[in-house]
Design a protein around this nucleic acid. Structure first.
Lengths: 208, 208, 208, 208
DNA sequence: TATGAATGAGCATTCATTCAT
DNA sequence: CATGAATGAATGCTCATTCAT
């Protein structure tokens, strides 16, 4: 009895482990290919081949290609969020806080070239089309900024009359657009951090 | 002789006129379909059928589908630019100027629902992939903002130390992201105009 | 020793019992799904899931999907044959005999809606293709009719010059086709039984 | 004007002719392959290759594979109907009429081996599943028999009390089942014709 | 200039079956 | 005996583009 149960558990455990490993390999391969080639140019086949698995295995772990891409985006979001948390928690004044976040993002981008661009742009492409339209990665980050600004508003003199959610969105929009332009035109990271920090701090200041 | 020449000229004139008419019909149909269904869900066939022309005619006017989409985006850009020019030229102080631009954009969006969203998002999808990546519609608008701010910087007390191109990009990024969020969450146009104007004015003010 | 032997026997007995139970559960699930969805739309996975067993177990009991379907058909055939035997044995003249059989078939069909249709039609689909083609369920029933008619021929004035096997086939063909049509067009069971009985009796009568 | 119009008409005419030719080639290839391999084992690709056309052309002429099969079945039905009409019109008494029909069917079957079997059996497989279930080829033939019997009922002493539609269905069911059995068991065509004719005539005769 | 029949590479997805545990 | 993760051949279909007329 005990033996049979143990074997069963063992089998389940091994099976589950194997399953998890497969999923991980697929996600790793997917991330690599989505970033290198983009969503449309990456076929499920390519992903499974890169993962060293059979074609069918893909659909054991993801409902479809879209689902896989969304999992990749979510993974990226979690990593960036973690990096931001790690960096920004030690900052104590507003400029330092903003700088920390920008630094975290740019560090992550350098470690994972193209990843954020892929996650942000290809997301629009796969808009479910089933009507509503889910919240975008950028929109989520805008909301997180709103949260963070709300916290800072308590300790820092900040314009009180703001619609914080809108503000958060504006901030991430500004950061994304400015960053993509700055790197495309060869500006330095330091310069960009300085400029954006200044810009955001001024925008938040109570004085009109 | 004269007659034959006249006929030739006549034919040429007729041909040119016909050609232009065809192109116009195709572009109108393309705009409608791209906005309604998006880039990927619109086939050249759909466009020609909607235009009442034969399938092959499409390639008489556009090199390929991508080219047609780009023409549509360009048309939209020109229309928006014209609307902005019309509205912003009468404004005299900075807040009035910003308000005028925002109003022009939102008016245009209301007259052409979904058009800007389509132009902005689907553009990323068709990134030629041939290496560099062309300049985005939003990037172009960022540069126009930079130009306009440069002009204003002469007459209005404005922070001199700015990297104006970056600033322009940040402004359009903020506007786009904030607007898309605001309308998705049911905020009023007036509120959005007020909030964004205030935000941008503060960000540009010389005081840190 | 004795103990070990007993355990072995016990295990074997348990194993056999368990095995039989599994097969029964699979067949029950298979019958349900084949009837509800048809042969092609039913996957072995669906059957095992409905049976509450693991995917692999299916192939412990059936060589393949086809084998499972054939087992289902055979089960149906046995049930219908039993029902016919039960009902027809008490009949004493030819019309009564035919009526009894038809009644048995229609009773069975009402208790198991769709079952006969599934067994009869999907059988053609899975024709092994390995050349000859096995004998169809309907052909088997035709032969059984031939047997039954042979028995009746001894006691009832019946045309002697018949090719009885052909006759049996014709009878089942007529019954199946007429029944499927009659129920599709909303005719009553009683009417159908009367019409078919009359038809068959006349066809068998010695007078030309 | 006239010239341009003529050219247009000419182009249209040529185009239409080419289109029709393509469709014909596809249907011919489809018929050959469906009969040789069956519905499931025939891929649209196989059909287009056999027709010497490109893959996509298939979907220019048929909505899908099913649609193509249905067109094949319909073609077969028309051919058989025409053959039956040709043969049966000259017959004057009931047995002669039945014999003529059977002969027409068997002649057609010999000229087109396997065709009827394919049309009749594979039709069930592709039952649209969208609920109702369309009328089967065999059902249609049953109704045609009913029509023909109705005409004969006026000139030949025939049981008046029959439900003719049911009778028609029974007759085709009997013919199909008996024929398939007879040929499988090596019986001669002449024997089968004689037996079936006798059977049907007796079934129709007024005497019970 | 205009046409539309033809093209065929390409794709996402399925499912009967195997086998290591 | 039972399991279920893994498999990969196979499939029906699409669509941007060409070219003979």
């Amino acid at each position: 009895m005990a033996t049979s149960n143990e074997t069963l558990i063992d089998n389940n455990a091994r099976g589950a482990k194997r399953r998890l490993e497969s999923r991980k390999r697929l996600l790793t391969a997917a991330r690599k290919l989505f970033v290198e080639r983009g969503y449309h140019a990456t076929r499920p086949q390519d992903i499974t081949r890169a993962a060293g698995l059979g074609h069918g295995t893909f659909y054991l772990h993801f409902a479809d290609k879209r689902d896989c891409f969304l999992a990749f985006v979510d993974e990226a979001r979690e990593e960036v969020d973690a990096a931001i948390m790690r960096r920004s928690s030690s900052a104590k004044d507003l400029p330092g806080f903003i700088e920390a976040i920008l630094t975290a993002i740019y560090d992550y981008s350098e470690e994972h070239p193209g990843l954020l661009a892929t996650a942000l742009t290809d997301e629009a492409v796969i808009a479910s089309g089933d009507g509503k339209g889910e919240m975008t990665l950028l929109h989520r980050w805008g909301e997180e900024w709103a949260e963070m600004l709300k916290v800072h508003a308590k300790t820092v003199p900040m314009a009180r009359d703001y619609d914080l959610p809108i503000l958060g969105q504006a901030v991430v929009g500004a950061i994304q657009q400015a960053s993509s332009f700055a790197f495309r035109t060869g500006r330095s990271r330091a310069h960009l951090v300085k400029t954006l920090t200044q810009l955001i701090v001024r925008a938040l200041s109570p004085r009109s």
